[in-house]
Amino acid sequence: MFIDVVGILLTVIIVSPRYWFIVLPLCFAESALTILISMVLESNITEVIAGGIFTTVAGLNNKNFLLILSPLFFLMLGLGLHKDKKIPWLDLINPIANFKRPWPALMIKTSLFRIMVIYLLN
């Protein structure tokens, strides 16, 4: 397992520099869940590069489906924990937005950005 410091810093800048102390554990949890899902589904993992939303998992038969399960889980969890009636979609784009409850909003943001990166880079 390697750690991509530049990817982690870019993740904090893209998602939310204001709530960096929340973004880092979310990225760690998402990477750990991706590895656990790959282990449970007996995918042969050869290399993991942890870089926030730019995390890559290399293996013999890794597919985008395995990589997208963890962000989908955190997206559904964030939508479930979000208490407001409507989601401020413009605040999801704004990296310095202020949230009343930052954990669900940042779960949604990191998940959406991670899904975009998976499909744009693969």
Rank of each mutant, 00 (worst) to 15 (best):
M1L: 12
I3R: 11
I3D: 13
I3T: 13
D4G: 08
V5G: 12
V6S: 12
G7F: 14
G7S: 05
G7N: 06
T11Y: 07
V12P: 02
I13L: 10
W20I: 05
W20G: 03
I22C: 09
I22P: 00
I22A: 07
V23T: 08
L24F: 06
L24T: 13
L26K: 00
L26R: 05
L26G: 10
A29V: 05
S31I: 13
S31Q: 04
A32R: 12
T34C: 11
T34H: 09
T34F: 02
T34V: 03
I35W: 03
I35M: 12
I35D: 05
L36E: 12
L36V: 13
L36A: 15
M39H: 12
M39Y: 12
V40C: 07
L41H: 11
L41W: 14
S43E: 15
N44R: 10
T46N: 09
T46C: 01
E47F: 08
I49G: 06
I49F: 06
G51C: 01
G51D: 06
G51E: 05
G51T: 09
G51P: 05
G51H: 06
G51Q: 00
F54E: 01
F54R: 02
T55K: 00
T55Q: 08
T56C: 04
T56I: 13
T56P: 03
V57G: 00
G59Q: 05
L60D: 15
N61V: 07
N64H: 07
L67W: 09
I68G: 02
L69C: 07
S70G: 07
S70K: 00
P71S: 06
P71I: 11
F73S: 01
F73R: 02
F74M: 07
F74C: 05
L75A: 01
M76R: 03
L77S: 04
L77P: 07
G78H: 03
G78N: 00
L79P: 04
G80L: 08
L81K: 06
K83S: 11
K83M: 10
K83A: 02
K83I: 15
D84E: 14
K86L: 14
K86F: 14
I87L: 15
I87Q: 10
I87N: 08
P88M: 06
P88W: 01
P88G: 11
W89E: 08
W89D: 09
L90M: 10
L90K: 14
D91N: 12
L92C: 01
I93F: 12
I93S: 07
I93Q: 03
P95K: 02
I96T: 13
I96P: 01
I96Y: 10
I96H: 14
A97Q: 08
A97L: 01
A97W: 07
N98K: 15
N98F: 03
F99V: 05
K100W: 07
K100S: 14
K100L: 03
P102Y: 06
W103F: 11
A105N: 05
L106R: 04
M107G: 00
K109D: 02
T110A: 04
T110P: 02
T110L: 15
S111M: 06
S111H: 04
F113R: 04
R114A: 04
I115L: 12
I115K: 00
L120I: 14
L121E: 11
L121T: 15
N122K: 09
N122T: 14
